[in-house]
Simulated assay, not measured.
Amino acid sequence: MSSSPKCSRQDLLDFLVSLNIETKTYDHEAVFTVSESHKIKQHLPGGHTKNLFLKDKKGKMVLVVCLNDTEVDLKSFHHKYDCGRVSFCNADLLWEHLGVRPGSVTPFALINDKDNNAVNLVLDANLMKEELVNFHPLENTATTAITSEDLLRFVEATGHVPTILALEKDAG
């Protein structure tokens, strides 16, 4: 386990600039849930997201990133992705591996897992169809817009290889 300090919002934004990735960040009041964020998101262009930090019984950690209205069936997720049955990670694991607190989960937090690569990333196929996507920049008092193409560049720069899956809950 790395004992390096967690990256700040400014560290993240500086890292994105170093990759020649353009973003736009909007400051707003703190939001903790998808429903709380609706009034903020209605004024921001692009796909709006939810992020689920999960682990299976063997300890495999998975960050699932999808559009905020995607219904992810956690009971059958292990059939779509190579893992065991999953449950939500606790706040301690979230802080230890991604360096963020509940309510601030974001794929940008992979910057805090650069040395360990302990977290697996699953991106929803529908999310990746969006030209512009929005995430918290490590804190839930702002939203940063990035192109889906640049999101992939960022993820690669952190040493992670994303899996892109259709996550929408199967009908029936």
Rank of each mutant, 00 (worst) to 15 (best):
L74I: 07
G46A: 06
V65D: 02
V62L: 15
D69V: 05
N68R: 13
G47Y: 10
K55N: 08
L74R: 08
L63R: 09
K58I: 08
K55Y: 00
G46S: 06
Y81F: 15
K58C: 11
V64K: 05
G59A: 10
K58L: 12
D56W: 05
K80W: 04
N68Q: 14
L67N: 04
L63P: 10
H79Y: 13
H48N: 02
C66I: 10
K80S: 12
D56L: 03
K57T: 10
D73Y: 13
H78N: 10
K39W: 11
T49N: 03
V62N: 10
F77C: 00
K55P: 01
V72I: 04
T49K: 07
C66E: 01
K80E: 03
C83L: 02
L63I: 05
V72F: 00
I40G: 07
D69P: 07
G47S: 05
K80Y: 09
L67H: 08
T70E: 09
N51E: 05
V65L: 00
L74Q: 02
D69H: 15
D56H: 10
L74G: 01
L63G: 01
P45N: 11
S76I: 06
V72E: 06
I40D: 09
G46K: 07
M61A: 13
F77G: 08
Q42G: 07
D82M: 06
K57G: 12
N68K: 14
K80L: 14
V86W: 04
G59E: 03
K55T: 08
Y81G: 04
Q42W: 14
L52R: 00
I40S: 06
D56E: 06
K41C: 12
T70L: 08
K50I: 00
K39I: 14
N51D: 05
D82T: 03
G46D: 02
G59C: 09
G47Q: 07
I40A: 06
V72C: 01
K50S: 02
H43M: 12
K58H: 12
T70Q: 05
K60H: 07
K50Q: 00
V65M: 04
L63V: 03
N68F: 14
V62W: 15
H43Y: 13
G84R: 09
H48P: 01
F53T: 04
R85S: 11
K41D: 14
K55I: 03
C66S: 08
Y81D: 00
D73M: 06
Y81P: 03
Q42H: 11
